[in-house]
Design a protein around this nucleic acid. Structure first.
Lengths: 414, 414
DNA sequence: CCGATTTGTCAATTCAGTGGACTTATCCGG
DNA sequence: CCGGATAAGTCCACTGAATTGACAAATCGG
């Protein structure tokens, strides 16, 4: 976004290049800017507000807004009487229910479908709890497609802007196959192709992404109206995922695999990890390690751990403290490396944050080089309830918001 | 760069915003694109070549090229007869000797000045070896300014595009004070203000940056015509610095402090580090640790270590192996986190790479999650001879190349 | 009801890039 | 030695997007 002439084309094995800018690029850019302003303002802005905020003239904003309204991407609210002098403003909002952004998720203990409209409101949703460890991809994808089909009917002709699937593993470049999902026990599965065959979506593109990255995207959206736009997101589940967010955007890395913090080295003499190495963070702060350390069965929900800790159970507190310290060490490494000043703890860590924080803070104090010069914030995630599912749908929404002209011309073709 | 309407303005404590695009933004963008093409093509391109490469029309490229030539940023070479049919092409190059980009460096064992022109050729250079541990900033900056003054005279009226200073420590945001340079023993020093007072440059801005980040910038320039544009750069010195390079640009982080890998945790039971924590990478792979492990005095040059290793010295090989393993562990963490597929070893590691590589590769094999799906490259730095000094000057060059219209209008004001 | 004020629109202007035709300059084959 | 083929660079009329300043619309306050 914000690239003149569309995104820079990173030609395979070539020097990074930028696209030429023509008159149409101006339109695309400014159209995107106006739509972003409508989408992200705390309350619906008027054309004049947008002109003020963007630096464009009212004339230009008017023309652009009209185009957005005509395309069904924005809408005018009834004018609101502000009891101030002057002609009252017509507030603009993102148009709801004009398109469907589909988020899907395959995770270790549930499958999910969530459909948002452009405004981010939920149009439909379905989550099936289950146990998907060591499953066969074709079967699970079939189940997911079966969940989709009644929802597809209920959407009744609403144009589908795209589909994005959250997966608990390494996804190659946002489209390529799922390389490795250790807890599902999947490897080199072309999830997009499997879904394409079963969902009957025609040529609607199916994107794949890592679950933690998408949860971070949902969190970035939740924090949009705060001052926090760059942070490191930690997603505590069976495994520990993470994502780097800069100015509200996921920094995905060269292959889309960035943010993997679960196998940070904590102690070379530590326990052997499922990945084959020794002393990984996951062995100290993963869900299994937390529960085992507290003497709980691995299938118990983490809520029980919080209950035990609140009751003062020694083994629970000890397990949480150990996990907190280990998390702190790994996060200190990460913060020194990528220089962010905020850490957001999601997944199972959010409800446990009070017990984890002392250990984390102690390690950050000791190990982050610049901790004396700038504050470091650690907080629980705002986005709740299958955040990755929301993030997946938001990714589709974001694509339309970032390039409304693309969507408009795409729509006008059908 | 590549942002329509100039860089996005990240307003303090506001949501990230983008600038409005007007006609002039088109010019700026395309002018920058044409200049970048001239600067980065392996051999001097003609107007027609540039049109081909950028996607602009020949007409447009001609107009833009003429503007660049008029501004003294580009120049036409004598036409070259290619023995092909058709009118011969006039090759365009970056104009040499039309402006001066000044790189300065304060490091632990030398001070340096290096002046490049826009084409990247060295116009002047002066390096003074010395021992600057535990020095007083005013004295050292005075020395540096004294080195500058004869060079300034020799540049005889060439316009100075900017000054950038490489420092071995945490620099706040590229301009703010130097927060901490442990080996110089400096803390919260406003180096820019000190230099401004002594260099008599008028209102020419003085930027500051971390030495490792700038060395990485030089390396990125050296690798420009290769296929490598994203990598993690490790700068082995007394301390161990690093930098993240993505598509040829330094990813500096929220405060400009990213890339610090020297205090990655290797073993919580390890030796106490100067930073106060235990088991940092620096204690295993820093210059002092390497020499001490090999039984050498700390003031010896690392060349002696390579000699000992080549002669088969057990303690030298052991020290190098230990360092290699530790580096491998830290790099595995970093690669999992930021997802790059290339590591460049600079500073003292470049000449020692053959001895370090086995340990590094072993750890990367064991700990990088995706190592089975994509190759990881580890190589020695190409840029030699005070790379940070070159990087500092290149940063100034880069600013002009990225925004030629800014430079042109700036120049026309005087 | 009228002036002040603010929103939204209209018309004329400016400016950058495009597309097609044209000029310039070379190579090559007869 | 000349003319056709070929490619580079330029000229010119045109298009499209944003700007500027004026104007119409709609409200508030006295």
């Amino acid at each position: 976004m914000a690239e003149l002439g569309g995104a820079a084309t990173t030609a395979a094995a070539g020097r990074p290049r930028v696209n030429p800018a023509r008159q149409a690029s101006l339109r695309e850019h400014n159209l995107g800017m106006v739509l972003a302003e409508i989408a992200h303002s705390p309350n619906p802005p008027s054309r004049a507000d947008i002109a003020q905020l963007t630096g464009l003239t009212r004339t230009t904003v008017s023309a652009l807004a009209d185009q957005l309204i005509a395309a069904g991407l924005a809408a005018e609210l009834p004018i609101v009487y502000s009891r101030k002098a002057g002609r009252p403003a017509a507030p603009l909002v993102i148009a709801g229910s004009t398109l469907a952004a589909v988020g899907l998720e395959v995770n270790v203990d549930y499958l999910g479908v969530r459909v948002l409209d452009l405004a981010g409101d939920v149009l439909a949703e379905l989550v099936t709890e289950g146990n998907y460890r060591q499953t066969r991809p074709t079967v699970v994808v079939g189940e997911l497609a079966a969940m989709w089909s009644p929802i597809a009917d209920s959407l009744a002709g609403l144009p589908i802007a795209g589909v994005c699937v959250a997966l608990p593993g390494l996804v190659h470049n946002g489209t390529g196959p799922l390389r490795l999902a250790p807890n599902l026990h999947w490897q080199d599965v072309d999830v997009a192709a499997l879904l394409q065959a079963r969902m009957q979506l025609g040529d609607i593109p199916i994107a794949l992404a890592n679950e933690a990255n998408l949860a971070a995207q949902a969190e970035a959206a939740a924090l949009r109206h705060s001052d926090i736009h760059s942070f490191f997101y930690v997603s505590g589940e069976i495994g520990i995922g993470g994502a780097i967010v800069r100015s509200g955007e996921i920094a995905a890395g060269s292959h889309g695999w960035s943010g993997e913090i679960g196998h940070t080295l904590i102690d070379p003499g530590g326990p052997v990890c499922g990945c084959g190495a020794t002393g990984c963070l996951e062995q100290y702060a993963g869900k299994d390690a937390l529960l085992r350390g507290a003497g709980l069965e691995l299938i118990r929900p983490v809520g029980e751990l919080a209950v035990l800790a609140a009751a003062g159970s020694g083994s629970a507190l000890e397990s949480l403290d150990r996990a907190g310290s280990a998390l702190g060490m790994a996060l200190a490494n990460a913060i020194n490396l990528i220089d962010v000043d905020t850490v957001v703890l999601g997944g199972i860590y959010a409800p446990l944050i009070d017990y984890l924080l002392p250990g984390i803070v102690e390690q950050l104090r000791a190990r982050v080089l610049w901790q004396a010069w700038a504050p470091i914030w650690v907080q629980a995630a705002q986005a709740q309830g299958h955040a990755a599912l929301t993030g997946a749908a938001l990714k589709v929404v974001g694509r339309v918001l970032a390039d409304p002209s693309g969507w408009i011309s795409h729509q006008s073709l059908r």
